[in-house]
Design a protein around this nucleic acid. Structure first.
Lengths: 219, 219
DNA sequence: GCAATAATGATAGTAATACTATTATCTTTG
DNA sequence: CAAAGATAATAGTATTACTATCATTATTGC
């Protein structure tokens, strides 16, 4: 499996060299350990035994590295969605499966690549909002930095429309589910009063599946 | 009207002096103009003709100023919720009113204080996530920095429980609505493909009201 | 096999940010 | 009107996020 990433996200393709792959692999580990705020190219440089300046030859700055990681994650997730639902004829069944994939971090590292998908998905859940919540969103959006995410939202919205062609807010519904699930995980870990104590790890997926099925299948 | 703010949020109460009030008033204007990322105490100092160091006597750093502003907003919003719903006997009616208040920025500056509530609510919609999405959340949460927000979520959750005592996720529902509404406004402005083109400014409130009423009033 | 080219390493340097510290001046109040 | 408290003026530091330069090491084309 190979995930295609838009060249606007990097200066030099990290998948084209050993150093590039080391940058990706170790940045995922470092960000998941210390959080994106504390992460710096200097610290990453120490770990991969390369100077900061070499990392800058691959990514304009640490923000673009995060955008790269989110783009990889969403392209990979689109692949997961397609693969997991391709044999399902029922649109409702496909939607349920999609919400399951979108509302929980990956469980197993497929080892398809040099990327640890479990750690990466945890990063996406807790940090991805920082990728598009910046003063440069408009610029970056116009360059196509967030296309992979938009494609996922669009694809799942199509299933919503199949189920309920008249429903006026399919994209709002899907992006609410995705972003909401990320936040609820964060709340559960840090601000538990904003969510509900549940013994069950499936609470977040179940909450969003209930919500979506209810609005789409009741008149 | 006077909004009580926890002393842990400031070094010296900004409401206790002219300079303090100037800091709040002008920081709201500056943040809403340039965004929180670009905002610095140095720039604020130029505008209020005071040195940076004087601002530091009121707030530990710009992050704590944002936490102060969000706390003010949520205390004020709790007041608005109580005031707007106190004559309503129907729980559903109270919930609908509450969602209206929570899902759109304030329309008019009440001039109750030195705070421009319209600008502040816009800041909350676009930047408040940065107040609690940091490496120090746990510390700050433990100190009570986010109590005002939690109180609002708790209060509205109580209405949800009145309507549907068995519903297992009242807090998840309420925080999903609040945070979701903030994000959908942001998406509409910057990443429109993640939301739905709607001529109606009431789309976001309507979407969330539909969602909530559907899940609570259908079996 | 070797020159040319590209990639990386080593090192230094800069501008901005986010503070902290010190002392002087001004303002308020008992 | 003196003392206390608040603010102004100024300087300084550590860190971050880069940029620049040049030496060294790999890679590739002939």
């Amino acid at each position: 499996m190979h995930v295609a990433i838009s060249p606007v996200l990097y200066v030099k393709d990290p998948d084209s060299s050993e150093l590039g792959r080391a940058i990706i692999k170790n940045s995922i580990e470092l960000i998941s350990q210390m959080g994106f705020e504390s992460f710096t190219f200097k610290k990453l440089g120490v770990i991969i035994s390369s100077p900061e300046s070499s990392i800058y030859r691959y990514f304009k700055n640490k923000h673009m590295l995060l955008v790269y990681l989110t783009s990889w994650y969403w392209s990979w997730t689109e692949y997961r969605l397609v693969f997991a639902t391709m044999n399902m004829t029922s649109a409702i069944e496909r939607l349920i499966k999609s919400i399951d994939i979108l509302t929980q971090p990956a469980q197993i590292d497929n080892e398809f690549s040099f990327i640890n998908e479990v750690l990466l998905s945890e990063i996406i859940f807790s940090e991805s909002i920082k990728a598009y919540h910046t003063k440069n969103v408009d610029d970056e959006n116009q360059k196509g930095c967030f296309s992979a995410y938009k494609n996922v939202v669009e694809r799942v919205s199509e299933i919503v429309k199949e189920i309920q062609p008249d429903y006026p807010y399919p994209h709002m519904l899907v992006s609410t589910v995705i972003e909401g699930a990320h936040q609820q995980k964060y709340f559960a870990a840090h601000l538990p009063e904003l969510t509900d104590k549940v013994n069950d790890a499936k609470a977040v997926p179940n909450f969003y599946k209930d919500l979506v099925l209810n609005i789409l299948t009741n008149e």
